[in-house]
Amino acid sequence: MRPASKARSRRNWLVIAVPYGWLLLFFLAPFALVLKISLSQSALSLPPYAPVFDWSDDFRAIVEKLQALSFESFAGFFNDSLYVDSYVSSVVIAAIATLLTLVVAYPFALAIARSSPKVRTILIGLAIAPFWTSFLIRVYAWITILKDEGLLNHFLMRIGLIDAPLGIFATNTAIVIGIVYSYLPFMLLPLYAAIEGQDQALLEAAADLGASPWRAFLRITLPLSMRGIIAGSLLVFIPAVGEFVIPDLLGGSDTLMIGRTLWNDFFVNRDWPAASAAAIVLLILLVGPLLVYERVQLRDEKVRA
């Protein structure tokens, strides 16, 4: 290597070292720990698990311990119908909510993107603004609305549309509503970016060639915004699967979502290995979508460069 490029590479490492070290310590190392603890047995102590590996272990001790690893937590995970159910229902609820978010956000994003350029930036700013306000408060607002004695039921009964409360609160429907509402900005922004970047002349060309507006939308606008749809859907789906606040506040006592199960295992049951196993399983569940998301990100990065 030439001296000049050697100096440059030394300088580069100086810049990278701090954030890299930080991520190694606070992001990558903790994952190794989660894996380690998910493989240990729960114990009634503090911390409430019997460690598998010690920092003092020599190599032979590690091999011996590897042979005696406890997959109890994982076995428990798959034997216990509670876990399997929460695993499945998390994915189902997140998928339905993601689809609904897309259905709500697309025409909204389209309406914003098709406004005059000056109005457009203000409108998208306004649409994103709620994202800056407290997530907790936005979820809480829906309790007030959806409760049996809440505003929605009160209003519907007042105008005589229903006789008894709808009973939406503390159900999976309420969770879906909560997710759609809370994650709307995450869907809106990539959709808007994908639609707004399109050349309007494309639609004029399609119309000129005899396509109706609806056909032009289906054949031009929709396919060209596919990247936005994929990015937005992943940005909603991935965190929604592991969501805790929404199922906890809007769901019922029988609602099973994996984020909440993990929370309860940890804070209520104090079964750390089980919580860790739940985290690992959740992570495995999300590896596919995460990889797709990474790929979209890295491709964007390449396009920009």
Partner: peptide, 24 residues
Amino acid sequence: IFAGAIYAPLVMPEVILGLSLLLL
């Protein structure tokens, strides 16, 4: 690895991040 570790927390469920940091 660097890019992955940077982008992952963007969408990683908070329960996982919280739990792993606590264990650390």
